[in-house]
Amino acid sequence: MLLEVKCYATLARFQPKENEYHLGPKPMLRDLIVFLGIPEGEVKISFANGVIVGPEYELQEGDRVGLFPAVGGG
Rank of each mutant, 00 (worst) to 15 (best):
M1T: 03
M1R: 04
L3R: 08
E4N: 13
K6A: 11
C7R: 08
C7V: 00
Y8G: 07
Y8P: 09
A9P: 00
A9T: 07
T10S: 12
T10D: 04
T10N: 03
T10L: 11
L11P: 00
L11K: 05
R13Y: 04
R13I: 04
Q15A: 09
Q15K: 10
Q15N: 05
P16M: 03
K17W: 09
N19L: 13
E20M: 12
Y21L: 05
L23T: 00
G24S: 04
G24Q: 07
P25S: 10
P25T: 00
K26Y: 09
P27I: 15
L29W: 09
L32I: 11
L32Q: 10
I33A: 02
V34K: 12
V34F: 03
F35K: 15
G37H: 04
G37K: 08
P39Y: 04
E40W: 07
E42W: 14
V43Q: 15
K44P: 01
S46V: 05
S46E: 06
A48Q: 06
G50T: 01
G50L: 12
V53D: 08
V53S: 07
V53M: 00
G54Q: 12
P55F: 09
Y57P: 07
E58D: 06
E58P: 00
E61N: 05
E61F: 09
D63E: 05
F68A: 06
P69H: 11
P69C: 10
V71F: 11
G72A: 09
G72F: 01
G72C: 03
G73R: 01
